[in-house]
Design a protein around this nucleic acid. Structure first.
Length: 104
DNA sequence: AAAATGACGGTGT
DNA sequence: TACACCGCCATTT
């Protein structure tokens, strides 16, 4: 199942700092495959290490929350993000303020 | 081996 | 901003 690309994505996901979020495409890009956003979503859903991989910090490119396998669904996911200090704009994340910048 | 699926992204309307 | 389409990728059926 695992190994290769997925491991890289997971490792990067673990680095997402508190109060910030990353997009699926961003993770895919950092992992070396800018167009594998979809696959990244699959990996998050699969989430092999829910304890160390903050999959709830991963949102769609427009800041919209697309899914959450854990209990509570998107509602819970949003709440978790808010608790982490992520700025919300209605039902979406304010990426201009809460988007993770790997360079910083 | 081929087709289908999904927690996506970009573009066009 | 919203909706419809198409392209992409890894995994599953």
């Amino acid at each position: 199942m695992l190994n290769q690309f997925s491991q890289k994505v997971y490792q990067i996901a673990k680095k997402i700092p508190s109060g910030k979020v990353a997009t699926y495409g961003q993770l895919a890009n950092l992992a070396g495959k800018p167009k594998a956003a979809r696959a990244v979503g699959f990996f998050m859903k699969n989430n092999p290490d829910i304890k160390n991989i903050p999959c709830y910090k991963v949102v769609a490119s427009d800041g919209r929350l697309c899914g959450y396998s854990a209990s509570g669904g998107l509602k819970k996911k949003k709440q978790k993000l808010v608790s982490d200090g992520v700025v919300f704009k209605g039902n979406r994340v304010d990426l201009s303020h809460s988007r993770w910048d790997p360079a910083s």
